[in-house]
Design a protein around this nucleic acid. Structure first.
Length: 480
RNA sequence: GCGGAAGUAACUCAGCUGGUAGAGUCACAGCCUUCCAAGCUGUUGGUCGCGGGUUCGAGUCCCGUCUUCCGCUCCA
């Protein structure tokens, strides 16, 4: 069996487990499903909340200079002009009908111009290049690009054919109309990233939270992208959740902060999410986005490939400067001690919550062969586990259920616990293993005599006796 | 959006050349069980993705459509 076969099987197993046990469901499945949209089920929402809490606590509670916000998904349309999303968050695409390969229309023309230059046809290149600029600035850019390709008879670099579809525009932002106003005036977008909600609130948060530079603003929230390519389960969705922090600092100090946040964020994944260090890798961007002066991604070795789960980017003062330009409002910071005034630089840590979720699942998924039977264990970090403990009476007789129920009721106010008396004890342990419950407490006949219960560990199957009265303290200790 | 493959129970799948829907698992109820998926009995659950066509009759053949998976393209 090839490696890819195994990997595909592994993803299939995880997807299947997610459906069967209530982690993730396909959105609106009874109608045939909606592409790249998923619902979190009863266990999924618990796990996701635990991941979000782990992030929120690590960022805001453990850093006195980071404050949290929860900004609206819809923002003033000018926000997206300032951020550059209206202009550059869309791609004009064209298909070669012969080779079935898709190109970006603007890249195609750029390539053509370069070729002309190479061949020494400088005048020709200059002329096309001028027309290219004109086309890009024209009102109907899509049509203008198409006409230019037709006029110059630009051939497909791949097949050499001249057999194109029309140029189509794919804007990755979802738009809607605000109120009853028709026309462009009322257009609003669903945010394609959460960061802008932080930038526009720079001053309001700084003042109300009494922050001095350097300080950060953290946010967890949904963002939306009308992706052309979707897939890999919840890895690339059109509606997704980001966990993001923008750290504002004095220009010149950004590399120091950048290195600090790189280290902190990598450690968070290892220590707080319990990810195996060997499955995480750094990736340095060579081609930087228009706003960045340094960019690293943390990637995880998913079964389907090594893919990004978090970006740590040094965004310079691009965003605040642009908002100052477009809004006309002053985005400068006045240093209370040195009296210096400047637009702060920003280091951003931006992590995909759903990608973290998938990573946690993939990393925890373990198969063990026991007595020839395959046994699936989700070795989740106890803090992240959707259910912290299972409470079982060994049998349904002799007053055992009553004792178990009492323990369950005592614990449920403090921890997410489950009571189960169905089927054999082994089956109940297995059920909990498969959903990552780290501990099970079993009430047996000895409990009636000496007030002790069995605690059984998920990862090893090992058992210990514990006094009934110590169960709560045991869980508190193990989960802190 | 293009090419390839596929859609039958909550999950994994079977259903031969068209003849009125099946298995295992799961779930639920009961019996039985003194610690790792035991066994027995019963129950719930499918207009076979959706729409049309051919036919006396379609899960099965034809057309359309939607969705998923794999490639291509793109990724702030």
């Amino acid at each position: 069996m090839s490696k890819t076969d195994t990997s595909e099987k592994l993803m299939e197993k995880i997807v299947s487990l997610c459906k069967r046990r209530g982690f993730i469901f396909q959105s609106s499945e009874i109608y045939g499903g909606l592409g790249a949209c998923y619902d979190y089920g009863p266990l999924g929402v618990e796990l996701k909340n635990n991941i979000k809490t782990a992030w929120w606590n690590a960022m805001t509670r453990e850093h006195e200079n980071i404050a949290g916000i929860d900004a609206a998904i819809m923002m003033h349309p000018k926000t997206w002009e300032a951020s550059g999303h209206v202009a550059s968050f869309s791609d004009p695409l064209i298909d070669d009908k012969t080779s079935k390969i898709r190109y970006r229309a603007d890249h195609l023309i750029e390539g053509y111009i370069k070729q002309l230059e190479k061949k020494g046809k400088t005048d020709e290149a200059k002329r096309v290049s001028e027309e290219f600029v004109k086309a890009q600035n024209s009102e109907d850019m899509t049509k203008a690009l198409y006409e230019l390709i037709m006029k110059e008879q630009i051939k497909s670099p791949d097949s050499g054919a001249f057999n194109w579809t029309e140029v189509r525009q794919f804007n990755l932002m979802f738009s809607s109309k605000l109120g009853a106003v028709a026309g462009d005036a009322g257009i609003v977008y669903l945010r394609p990233e959460t960061a802008q909600g932080i930038f526009v609130n720079f001053h309001t948060v700084r003042e109300s939270a009494r922050m001095k530079i350097p300080f950060g603003i953290a946010q967890i929230g949904k963002a939306f992208r009308n992706e052309i390519v979707k897939g890999n389960f919840i890895f690339r969705m059109i509606e997704f959740e980001q966990m993001e922090m923008q750290y504002f600092l004095k220009p010149g100090t950004q590399m120091e902060a950048f290195d600090m946040w790189r280290e902190k964020r990598m450690n968070w994944h290892i220590e707080r999410l319990g990810i195996k260090p060997e499955n995480l890798v750094w990736y340095q961007h060579e081609k930087l986005a228009h706003y960045a002066d340094a960019a690293y991604d943390i990637k995880y070795k998913f079964p389907f490939g090594t893919e990004e789960i978090e970006g740590i980017h040094s965004r310079t003062d691009f965003d605040l400067r642009r908002h100052q330009e477009y809004s006309g409002k002053n985005m400068m910071y006045s240093d209370p001690e040195t009296k210096e005034k400047y637009i702060p630089y920003v280091v951003e840590t931006s992590s995909g919550c759903d990608r973290n979720f998938l990573m946690v699942l993939c990393d925890a998924y373990t198969e063990q062969i026991e007595d020839g039977e395959q046994h699936v264990i989700l070795k989740l970090k106890p803090e992240l586990a959707p259910v912290k403990a299972g409470i079982f009476p060994l049998t349904k007789k002799d007053g055992l259920p009553e004792v178990a129920e009492k323990l369950y009721h005592d614990l449920k106010r403090h921890f997410k616990v489950q009571y189960d008396d169905a089927g054999s004890i082994g089956k109940r342990y297995y059920r909990q293993d498969e959903t990552g419950t780290p501990f099970c407490f079993t009430i047996d006949h000895d409990t009636l005599n000496d007030q002790t219960v069995t605690v059984r560990y998920r990862d090893t199957g090992a058992q210990e006796r514990l006094n009934l009265s110590q169960v709560k303290a045991f869980l508190t200790e193990k989960l802190s």
